[in-house]
């Protein structure tokens, strides 16, 4: 018999590891990836591969040569960041822009704060927003979903339903008139519309959500609080004037609401720790999203909303505490 081990209790552990959690997220993203490849073809594959490879490479290089740590790319977090970054860009984005985005996501968004667990902002969103501000033309010329095609950067481009809606309302058209120009709700649900690679297919995103819930990777609180807030807020606006405001379902199915709510806002590192805090966070993301979409200059605001609420997370964690057992109330 070898020497016996002594350690403080507990002596048993759940088999969940960081790696398993990350790979579960990757599995949950596969349906989205499949639908994107179906609609956008080669472009989706090239963008995803570029983003994933460059994210992994930057993480490895930075850990090895700048931080002089043991590289930990096998934990899967850089893989998740890479796929999420790819999901957040159009499929005709030039490769070099994606590499720049990966560098910003991993280098600035994550490693500059000390790596996994220490970054205040979602790295993939940092990358995306950087690209959106730096390369607005490339980042907003979305390819038209045509079914699988081999075209990459020379794909036919068009506007997203959200963009059409924003422009139409701005030009004084009525919502019902605009609706005729864009895909039906059912088509949007299946993903037949222009947009960033991972945000088009609601059905695939919801499938991923169910998988994450079953595997207990995330709880329902963050996605549902965001979706409910957006539904209620846009619902009120729609009921006030259905001709100048789009219906809530339109808002949910277009743009990055579901992608953001299910995969981006739920990022462990950048979301609050307590359930109460999560509600504040989710409602905040919902409100800011709608404010940007309806009253702001950009047609879409999910990524800004998430980043803004990310910034509040440390504050939320400091002041919103879980209710303690047997807490003595002074009332």
């Amino acid at each position: 018999m070898s020497k016996i081990t002594i350690s403080p209790s507990p002596h048993v552990y759940e088999d969940t590891t960081v790696k398993r959690l990350m790979f579960d997220v990757v599995i949950a993203m596969l349906p989205v990836l499949a639908i994107s490849i179906y609609f956008f073809g080669m472009g989706a594959i090239i963008v995803t591969l570029t983003a994933v490879v460059s994210c992994l490479a930057f993480e490895w290089l930075i850990q090895k040569y700048m931080l002089k740590q043991e590289p930990s790319i096998t934990d899967g977090s850089a893989l998740v960041t890479g796929i999420l970054l790819a999901f957040n860009v159009p499929t005709n984005l030039p490769i070099w822009i994606i590499i720049v985005g990966s560098l910003v996501a991993i280098g600035v968004g994550k490693m500059s704060f000390g790596g996994l667990g220490n970054n205040p902002f979602n790295p993939a969103l940092v990358g995306r927003v950087f690209l959106l501000i730096s390369f607005p033309v490339q980042m907003t010329s979305w390819p038209v979903p045509t079914g699988f095609s081999n075209s990459y950067t020379d794909a036919v481009t068009g506007a997203t339903p959200l963009g059409v809606m924003k422009e139409g309302i701005g030009a004084g058209e009525s919502v019902s008139a605009i609706m005729d120009k864009i895909p039906s709700h059912m088509e949007m649900f299946y993903g037949h519309m222009g947009g960033s690679m991972g945000e088009i297919a609601a059905v695939a995103l919801l499938l991923g959500f169910v998988y994450l819930l079953i595997r207990k990777v995330i709880t329902w609180h963050i996605p549902i609080s965001i979706i409910a807030t957006i539904t209620i807020f846009t619902g009120i606006l729609w009921m006030i004037n259905p001709e100048s405001n789009a219906d809530p379902l339109f808002h949910l199915l277009t743009g990055g609401v579901l992608l953001g709510a299910i995969f981006m806002a739920t990022d462990y590192v950048t979301s609050p720790m307590s359930v109460k805090g999560i509600w504040i966070y989710g409602v905040g993301i919902g409100l800011i999203t709608v404010l940007i979409r309806v009253f702001g200059a950009y047609p879409e605001g999910v990524s800004f909303a998430i980043l803004i609420m990310n910034a509040f997370v440390p504050l939320i964690n400091m002041y919103i505490k879980p209710k303690r057992f047997g807490e003595v109330r002074n009332d």
């Binding site: 020497k3 081990t5 002594i6 350690s7 403080p8």
Partner: peptide, 22 residues
């Protein structure tokens, strides 16, 4: 001679709180 092996948080003060040592 070491007669057992400790596997826990790597500080002496936790070891001494737990037992007589390796």
């Amino acid at each position: 001679k070491k007669v057992n092996s400790y596997d826990g948080a790597s500080t002496c003060v936790i070891v001494s709180g737990l037992y007589s040592g390796e």
